[in-house]
Design a protein around this nucleic acid. Sequence first.
DNA 1: CCTTGTTGACGTAACGTTAATTCAACATAG
DNA 2: CTATGTTGAATTAACGTTACGTCAACAAGG
Lengths: 334, 334
Amino acid sequence: MATQRDVARAAGVSLAVVSAVVNGTSHTRMKESTRTRVLQAMQQLGYQPNQTARSLRLNQTDMIAMILNKIDNPVYGPLRHGVYEAAAEHGATVLLGDAETMRSGSQFLTRLLSQGTVDGILIRGEGLLDDDVMAELSSHPKPILILEHALDHPWIDIDDRRASEIATRFLVNLHHRHIVFVGGSGYISQQRYLGYQQAMDAAGLTPAPHLATGFGEQAGADGVRQAMQAATAPTAIVVNNIMSAVGVLAAARDLGIAIPDQLSVVGIHDVDLMQHLRPAVTAVRMPMYQLGRAGVEALYDLIAGRPSAGGVITDPEPKLVIRDSATALTRIRD
Amino acid sequence: MATQRDVARAAGVSLAVVSAVVNGTSHTRMKESTRTRVLQAMQQLGYQPNQTARSLRLNQTDMIAMILNKIDNPVYGPLRHGVYEAAAEHGATVLLGDAETMRSGSQFLTRLLSQGTVDGILIRGEGLLDDDVMAELSSHPKPILILEHALDHPWIDIDDRRASEIATRFLVNLHHRHIVFVGGSGYISQQRYLGYQQAMDAAGLTPAPHLATGFGEQAGADGVRQAMQAATAPTAIVVNNIMSAVGVLAAARDLGIAIPDQLSVVGIHDVDLMQHLRPAVTAVRMPMYQLGRAGVEALYDLIAGRPSAGGVITDPEPKLVIRDSATALTRIRD
DNA sequence: CCTTGTTGACGTAACGTTAATTCAACATAG
DNA sequence: CTATGTTGAATTAACGTTACGTCAACAAGG
């Protein structure tokens, strides 16, 4: 492939001029005629800049890594979009990795740890990374930003507590009194349980214990089964994880429980799928796209050595999307 | 950060020795004691190799790009796993891009086209890339492998025709006679329609015209609605796209059609979600993981200048996973 | 004794880019 | 006419690696 040297030779100018043309440096000036001559030579030779050489020289790769705990989770779709978009605006490309494969010594981790791979790292799912992996990453000279609540790193997160509070309050307003929270483990589930608790308390209702069955479809199914075994079965469920909601629907059908007539369901996080399920699932939409964008901006603040704006995103609030899986309780029970 | 030069100084050896220790070169030899001294110095200084410099020197980045037409499609989960795994075995990292954002002049495309970004490119969804984008990519000196049927490039694909043939034959064996194919546009849908046609012909049945409603949930719903409007409504449907199957279930429910009692449904491609829907969806599992692995291997053949094994993957055959969405037709209609 | 081979290492030239430094040619002001 | 600027460019030193070529020291074989 043609290099700047070839272009310089073809255009009859020095290397410096070609470089200046390539990235519009003001320091090395030239006549407009020279510029076009260089541009023509580039065209003719099919010159393509060499990223590697550029990165070496500038000590900057224009790549950032994003590590997700479960890359397949559809809630990450908008997050990824936000990150890709914002990264592109910064002229950067995204290297996507899965937390599950990030073991110590793995190819991806080794790559990340080596110099000149990425300019910064975004992580969602810090809790799922082994401690030694986090330690290795932390020793990396490039900045790290966590896309959830964190203690040892700059972070930015969505308002999980508020989301479940909104979901719970919605059910309270539909006259439900026995509402249960089907959740999982970890800080995020805990926050969501807190929001549930808060809304229950505010309504003068007794919060049920946290049914921490885990993540995913099976967890939702398990949650429903456990909940329905209680002395007084709940009339409504707040589901921690949107994929769990799928399991909740399945388990309810299997148990012969009609949704929403016998059991109302509200999910946290909204994905396209929810509107195509039957019944379509009422869910709280979280600003994942904005989280992605804000994460990249904060990371670039860090990269530039500027103070980075972190904390919980409150501007686009979690938003309830009402569909068919929750309905008002007409027959008051106790 | 410490460089090889620093390590060399600390260990009292030359640069060449450090480099040899780092990548086990046989040309430059050394005493075992020297080797351990270098290793110790590395440890002490926290030396991390610089990928960028390495790439520049070797003209090889140990990265490959994978471009998917709809990155969020869950059927790509196993494909991605296969690609990531096989790439890691080759010491390479994967740069994931979405065909939707690959416009001419976009950040990602520009990056791909520049030298020293990736060693090769994997594409699924060639048809969705603009012609000028494909032309630009093709002019790239690094090899390109298409993960579906292609004319202008080496390719490797799954057996779509066989898949729908299997699905259709299954329904035929359940005594269905009015079977319809809900599909979309493009080569893949066409192949699947062909498989359907083939199975229908083999059973002496008349294939219905291709109901090409597109991709995704809405397409599935549209397909059902159209199919049920026919003079003789079908008793079974083969759904081209797995996400369409979700839409089929929803539309059937909305129309008051019981699945599988009034309408049997078989999907092509299987994803976790299918077993959690109600009814759980009978589907043909495609070897997407193997496609990913085989794609990487073929790409590395190309990179090494070896002849690459392409064509349709037949070893793990498409496999029917029987669940609850299809049942035998007992009441013979006409 | 010289020749040949082996062990263990060193020096250095690239790879392609960027940016600091230098400089010739010419114009303008005093 | 000289001093001072400006325009338009060329030279060159890195950035961190890798691998080729070289070489000293020593051993063994004739």
